[in-house]
């Protein structure tokens, strides 16, 4: 777990991102702040459209579309603002200091090249290895990600591999440069359940062995509970709560976190229906004035609609709410 006195490896500050559309700008990200410490696994959770993946791409400076524009903010990696880095600086950082695991390995691997091609290129580009050394190192890494017969796999094309093997190749590429930060964008979502389990175990083992910091994006709470040290909950393009994983699960403080956790299906509790969060996801074409969750929040007050709560610290936890829940809070029952 992160020690608070250490300096963060990654700091996101007041990050705003807009998409230009014919109907006017869409305010997709309005992120107050998020820190990631060296060696920790930070789970980033939230429903679809909350801005999780967008945050991940922005960290790497990869905007998803030509219409996307960062209007303000900083993404500090090791104290250096990635949003103001030159293309050459970014090329140097990407793949070496920060790397990324994509969601769908089938789409992320070029269909007309053997899977070994990009892996070897990363090793030559970021580790300065000669072709023979790169090949040797590639075989070692493939072995580390538990791919059988690495020499043969290097020459295979993506369509000749199974989904699990493709994701292992993806992971091999991500660790090849020896990164300090790994951004994993829903790395298990596109996989079969049994393969998901293997990939999670592999990621866990690799993270422990290398001490890499991981920004783990997912909507799967079970995966977060197993892998993450801390969890950041996103809603409407902002982080609403950050907490150590056990504390978030046992005592969420933001009403949205609470409702999100209640929506997880459990085998033990035989309920007729799963509880759903009332209302709709916010319309991002309007810049939110108050709390983004206010229209759907059972605990909403006049202040929530006019003023935006910022993420404030309370011990190891941070919550952006004027009326945070406390342990044994009587209102907790009202929410459920």
């Amino acid at each position: 777990m992160a020690e608070p006195q250490r300096l963060p490896l990654l700091e996101i500050r007041n990050l705003s991102l807009e998409f230009a559309t014919p109907l006017g700008p869409v305010y997709a990200l309005n992120l107050g702040g998020l820190d990631l410490y060296p060696g920790e696994v930070l789970g980033l959770v939230g429903e679809s459209g909350s801005g999780k993946s967008l945050t991940a791409s922005t960290v790497l400076g990869l905007l998803p579309s030509r219409r996307a524009r960062v209007t303000s903010g900083q993404v500090l990696f090791d104290g250096r603002d990635l949003l103001r880095a030159t293309p050459a600086e970014l090329q140097h950082i990407r793949g070496r200091d920060i790397s990324m695991i994509f969601q769908d390995p089938m789409a992320a691997l070029n269909p007309v090249f053997p899977v070994g091609e990009p892996l070897l290129r990363i090793l030559r580009l970021h580790r300065g290895l000669r072709p023979a050394e790169a090949r040797h190192e590639a075989l070692r890494i493939l072995d580390e990600v538990q791919i059988p017969d690495p020499a043969a796999i290097l020459r295979r094309y993506p369509h000749e591999l199974s989904g699990g093997q493709r994701q292992r190749i993806m992971i091999a590429m991500a660790i090849a440069g020896g990164p300090r930060l790994l951004v994993a964008d829903e790395p298990t979502t596109a996989l079969d359940v049994t393969v998901q389990e293997q990939v999670i175990r592999l990621l866990q083992a690799l993270q422990r062995a290398h001490g890499t910091a991981v920004l783990f994006i997912t909507h799967n709470m079970g995966v977060v509970a197993r892998l993450a040290d801390r969890v950041a909950v996103m809603y409407g393009g902002d982080v609403v709560e950050v907490a150590p994983v056990a504390e978030l699960f046992s005592a969420p403080r933001h009403p949205y976190s609470r409702l999100l956790l209640d929506a997880i299906p459990r085998v033990s509790a035989r309920r007729e229906r799963l509880p759903a969060i009332g209302g709709e996801v916010p319309d991002l074409r309007r810049r939110p004035v108050g709390c983004a969750f206010a229209p759907r929040c059972p605990l909403v007050t006049a202040r929530c609609l006019s003023e935006r709560p910022s993420l404030s610290a309370a011990g190891a936890r941070q919550v952006a709410c004027f009326h945070p829940l406390a342990a044994g809070d009587s209102r907790t029952e009202a929410l459920a």
Partner: peptide
């Protein structure tokens, strides 16, 4: 797979 190329510098 092109975004991947950019993501890996």
């Amino acid at each position: 797979y092109i975004r991947l190329g950019r993501a890996f510098g």
